[in-house]
Design a protein around this nucleic acid. Structure first.
Lengths: 199, 199
DNA sequence: CGTGAGACAAAAACGTGCCTAACGTCTCAG
DNA sequence: CTGAGACGTTAGGCACGTTTTTGTCTCACG
């Protein structure tokens, strides 16, 4: 019944995560201490540990999750304004690429190494991002194509976004809408991506 | 006039490179010392430094280059036996994926960080591999499609091979020929990859 | 001439102890 | 239920001496 999108998260929780995010932007991931976050958030040390039992690891992980959530929320919003499949895909690719380029935190998620404690619970790095992308975007693409096709396309394009971000090419500019459209068209991504083999 | 593929490389040079490769397999990239290579190769310290002026960095870089050369030579061989475009691409994808999976050295090339001294001269990591792939494979694909299309397809598929290697998916198995064929067909990679937009 | 053997200084890697800073838990007052 | 802070424990940095390793140079040998 709250106003939040999917989680019932306390006001304080958000304050802590905001502070964490801000601290990381300033000092860098490794240099941030809990006390920094205490100072920034205005909350007490005890509260933080109550909100995020498990301490530093859990707190940072929670921040990453939230960061991904807002990112994909943006993506979902962008996708809903799309007119056709090509527009949908191109918009998402461009937005995602631009966000990655200007948001270090987001980019870090791609290189995130396996956490010791949480390693078994949460997927990390590239697989996580690809997984979330397919989960969020596949339903939207299903308006135009089959479930299987949507899943395949979203996964492949997610991987390409990551790849072109990490190692840009002279062929395509994924931050440019027209370039992306041309790219998609050249590959017949839009025409009839079906699982059928014969023609 | 020699029997080598592209470089006139001395017999000793190969011995050093072989020894280097062997040492790395045994001890790991970081643990290998020049003296280890001296012992293994049977050549003297002085000779090694004469063959590879610049020392460790240059030597290791040379080994990487050679490793990539034999890899792409294998790929070229595999490609030449192909019957059509789909077969060509699938064969290359499968072979490349399998080689990556079983050859640690090759995989390391993808994660190779920018060398300080040679950073400006040689491209490294993912971009290098993608670049070499396009250079080697594009000519072969041109038998079936246009130059531009070949270039695009090879680049994209190279990136996907790397991506699926680093973060495997449940959707596709790039080490399985049938799975790859199905994948390619599903995406219309083969039908008519053209740069034209209108239809 | 080219190669191997080895000496050599400079630089990097290593081990060690110490110390400060940070962590996570706890208690207690408001 | 929160903030303030004490507290034991742990982890990260730093200074240090030592050992390896590196890269160059010399010289004897064929």
């Amino acid at each position: 019944m709250g106003q939040g999108a999917f989680r019932e998260s306390s006001r304080d929780e958000a304050r802590v995560l905001d502070a964490t995010r801000a601290c990381i932007d300033d000092l860098g991931l490794t240099r941030v201490t809990i006390d920094d976050i205490v100072t920034r958030s205005g909350l007490s040390r005890a509260t933080i540990y109550r909100l995020f039992p498990g301490g530093r690891e859990v707190l940072f992980e929670a921040m990453r999750v939230r960061e991904l959530e807002v990112f994909f929320e943006k993506l979902r919003g962008e996708a809903e304004g799309a007119s056709d499949l090509g527009d949908l895909l191109a918009r998402c690719i461009v937005l995602a690429s631009r966000e990655l380029a200007q948001d270090d935190q987001l980019a870090m998620l791609l290189a995130a190494e396996r956490g010791e404690v949480l390693g078994q619970l949460t997927v990390d790095g590239v697989p996580r991002v690809v997984l979330m992308a397919t989960q969020v975007l596949t339903p939207l693409a299903e308006q135009y194509i089959s479930h299987e096709a949507a899943q395949q396309i979203v996964e492949v394009l997610s991987r390409l976004v990551i790849s072109y971000f990490l190692a840009p090419s002279m062929q395509v500019d994924f931050t440019d809408y027209a370039s992306v459209r041309q790219f998609l068209d050249a590959f017949n991504f839009l025409t009839h991506p079906s699982v059928h083999i014969n023609d």
